[in-house]
């Protein structure tokens, strides 16, 4: 059983394979992320965990002196580098794992962890990644965490389910080559439960366009 399960490395490999095409289809920042970043104040350092092609890192740069864009896929980081070239030295690119962040404690004022959590195959890794986010956030730091959910109408599952499910969703490259991607589709209650079990405290929660969105702060750190 365990041998059949996708690993974080498998997911990384998938994105290395589809990075160029994936990037072209992810041109615009999500409106939910725009509102979050707009409502946050200015910070010294912002972090994008799972930056993809850099669309949200670009947004973070509007309110942050410096932005650190992190992704497991080198291919996606190269796409980010191209997209963020005009920001020059204000952007740092780091290849890294959401479940073991290579960043110091309390170093980040603002973070987004968008559409990435659901790519971590094991629940303990997903929870660990939330703990890691709590660890790197400054005491007064805030983050936006999102994941695909059972509330999305493409799934048979219901938003009222207690837990979500694992699935693979195919990515079709030009020329019809199909690349499967691992997803854990979260039930909203399960998502809230994972946040509650982590070092993060929930500030705000909503379901929008079939995704769970949580605004979070680190729990137990005094600003």
């Amino acid at each position: 059983m365990a041998d059949d399960q996708a690993t974080r490395r498998d997911v990384r490999d998938t994105y290395e394979e589809i990075a160029d095409h994936f990037s072209k289809t992810r041109e615009y920042a999500w409106p939910e992320v725009e509102s979050f970043v707009e409502s946050a104040g200015n910070v010294d350092l912002a972090l994008d965990v799972g930056c993809g092609n850099g669309r949200h890192a670009e947004l973070l740069a509007t309110g942050a002196a410096e932005v650190l864009a992190l992704d497991a896929s080198r291919g996606l980081l190269l796409e980010s580098r191209e997209r963020l070239a005009s920001l020059g030295d204000r952007v740092a690119l780091v290849q890294g794992d959401a479940a073991s962040l290579p960043l110091d404690d309390d170093s980040v004022g603002l973070a987004v962890y968008v559409a990435t959590l659901h790519h971590l195959p094991r629940r303990e890794d997903r929870r660990r990644s939330l703990d890691e986010l709590a660890r790197v956030l400054a005491p007064d730091g805030r983050a936006l965490v999102s994941a695909w959910s059972t509330a999305h109408d493409r799934f048979d599952a219901s938003a009222d389910d207690a837990v979500g499910f694992d699935t693979t969703i195919d990515w079709t490259r030009p020329g019809d080559e199909v690349v499967p991607r691992f997803y854990h589709i979260y039930a909203p209650d399960e998502f809230r439960e994972d946040v509650a079990a982590s070092g993060l405290a929930l500030v705000d929660f909503e379901i929008s366009s079939g995704n769970c969105y949580a605004v979070v702060r680190p729990e137990g750190k005094r600003p």
């Binding site: 490395r9 690119l93 290849q95």
Partner: peptide, 17 residues
Amino acid sequence: EGIPNLLPPDMRDDIPA
């Protein structure tokens, strides 16, 4: 090429799975 690879060893290419 200017990008630090700070993936844990089990997620890197150079270590056999």
